[in-house]
Structures are given as structure tokens and as C-alpha cells.
């Protein structure tokens, strides 16, 4: 779906922000992009819908070279959710806001209505269609922004820190919505600083550090190589960190990511053997 080859990017008169990245994201993957502030995460995300164009190498979305396309055209393939929903929202009703994208794409009145209703249903906003988005809570505004992307029917969803500034419940609600879309076959790429969230949702993790890929592997393998993570000042979630304090954790605990997994391992094996080698 997304093919990145020797991507290099530098802002005008600046040092390169991304250096020689090559990777591929297949249709239907659930990818987390992690790294410190300033590692180039957002810069990389913006390559996927052509907001930024490579200064070296190529980015192909579904076969289209982003340099030969515009963000407007790519918007039908890649939906980009910004960190702050207020950057997106400016129309007086939720319905208009969701319909703005399809209207830009030149859809007919009926088609716009159909898409608005469909997208609103996907994020649970049907009761609010005639409300002014500014009177909604931050979590709901985030959903409005989200639905306004879904209405353009993109295959790939790109999310830049979707849970920042929201409380735990709102964050989980957004991620559950994203997960449901993923189950319907969407490709998801998200950036976050919350490692617990990564462990809970991502299948694949790409670790960026100073514009380069430090690791690109399954979630489990990334969090069980903490030395590499620590080099870029990231720390695995609590459960993997705890398990790795035991010398021969592999035999005793395996490589759990969640409380449930570790709890099952401990209670399943009778809670006896695992301490013998520590």
C-alpha cells in the first residue's frame, strides 16, 4: 500500500530530518511509529499524504508517486488526523464539517449526505449532526475531525498523537474506533508517546531516531529489546519492563505485553517455578 524507497527529506536550508528510509507498509497493517520529540515522526507521516514531498528517494501510495500528485488527490487514499482537532474544524455544524471533504472532491448532494451519515455512524456521532462542533467536548471534536476524514473513504488512516490531551477513557474510545476500522480492512499508522497504547493496539512498531529507522519489527520483539529502545530514550511498557527484570524470563514468563497475558502465565503454571532462577 505504502512503499518508501531511500526517502530523504530536509526542510529548505536545513539539516536532513529524514535520512535514507526504506520500508513498505502492506494493506491492512496496524503500525505504530514511535520516537522522541524531534525524531521526525510527524515529518514522516506528512510524506504519506503529500503534505511534504521527498527531497530524495520516493514515496508511493498505492503505486502513485507522491511527487506527481497533490494532497487533495491523495486525501482519497490517505486520511490524516491531526493532533489538534481544532486545526480542522471551522464549519458551524457537525454535518457540514463531515461533508466538507466530499464536497471538495466534487460529490453530488445525495452522495455527500450518504457519506456524512455513514461516517457519523462509524464514530457514533449521529445524534450530534446538527450541533455546532465548538460546543462538543474535546473527545467529541476529535471524532468530528475523524469522521470528516472517513467521509472521503480513504483506505489508509494516519493519526498523529490521536490521544494527546484527552483523558484515559476518551483515548481508549478513539483507539477502539480505529481498531474497528482496522478490522474492516483499513491500514492504520499512528504516532504516540504512550507505550501502553502501542502494546495494546499495534501489530508492528517502527522506531525512529534522528531521522533514521532504529527498529522495525513486531510489537513484541521491539519491546523485548529494551537496549535499543533506551538508546533513543524510550522505555517499554510496564509489563515487559517488569518481566525483563527476571534473568531467565523467556522460559518462565514468555514475552507478555499485557496484564492479562502475564497473569495467565503466572496462575497457569501454579506460580511456583518462575522464581527459581532469579
Amino acid at each position: 500500500m505504502i512503499k518508501v524507497e531511500q526517502l530523504t527529506f530536509a526542510y529548505p536550508n536545513g539539516m536532513p530530518v529524514l535520512e535514507n528510509l526504506s520500508f513498505e507498509i502492506k494493506s491492512g497493517e496496524f503500525v505504530a511509529l514511535i520516537g522522541q520529540n524531534g525524531a521526525g515522526k510527524t515529518t514522516l507521516l506528512k510524506q504519506f499524504n503529500g503534505l511534504l514531498k521527498p527531497t530524495g528517494g520516493t514515496v508511493r501510495i498505492d503505486g502513485i508517486d507522491t511527487r506527481n500528485s497533490t494532497t487533495g488527490i491523495l486525501a482519497q487514499k490517505v486520511g490524516f488526523l491531526f493532533q489538534n482537532p481544532d486545526h480542522q474544524i471551522f464549519l458551524p455544524t457537525v454535518a457540514q464539517e463531515i461533508g466538507f471533504g466530499p464536497a471538495n472532491l466534487g460529490c453530488s448532494r445525495e452522495e455527500i449526505d450518504r457519506r456524512v451519515r455513514e461516517a457519523a455512524a462509524q464514530v457514533g456521532l449521529e445524534p450530534y449532526l446538527n450541533e455546532n462542533p465548538l460546543f462538543l467536548s474535546k473527545g467529541q471534536r476529535q471524532r468530528v475531525a475523524f469522521a470528516s476524514l472517513l467521509s472521503m473513504r480513504p483506505q489508509v488512516m494516519v493519526l498523529d498523537e490521536p490521544t494527546t490531551g484527552q483523558d484515559y477513557r476518551e483515548g481508549i474510545e478513539i483507539m477502539e474506533m480505529v481498531k474497528a476500522l482496522h478490522r474492516q480492512g483499513h491500514t492504520v499508522i499512528f504516532v504516540t508517546h504512550d507505550m501502553e497504547l502501542v502494546a495494546r493496539y499495534a501489530e508492528r512498531v517502527i522506531v525512529l531516531s534522528q531521522g533514521r529507522i532504529l527498529m522495525d519489527d513486531t510489537c513484541r520483539r521491539v519491546f523485548y529489546q529494551p537496549d535499543v529502545l533506551r538508546r533513543t530514550n524510550l522505555f517499554p511498557p510496564q509489563i515487559p519492563t517488569l518481566v525483563q527484570k527476571f534473568d531467565c524470563y523467556q522460559e518462565d514468563f514468555g514475552t507478555p505485553l499485557s496484564v492479562e497475558e502475564l497473569y495467565a502465565t503466572i496462575t497457569g503454571c501454579g506460580g511456583e517455578e518462575y522464581v527459581h532462577c532469579s
Binding site: Y168, E196, Q238, I239, L242, S258, V259, L262, I266, T267
Partner: peptide, 15 residues
């Protein structure tokens, strides 16, 4: 109130 205790605390709580 829709919040969670830390995962390690939750693990030991359940154990």
C-alpha cells in the same frame, strides 16, 4: 471515574 491504576499494580492486585 474511567481511569486505571498502573499495569504492574493491577497485576499484583489481581494476583
Amino acid at each position: 471515574v474511567g481511569l486505571q491504576i498502573p499495569p504492574v499494580s493491577e497485576l499484583m492486585y489481581r494476583l
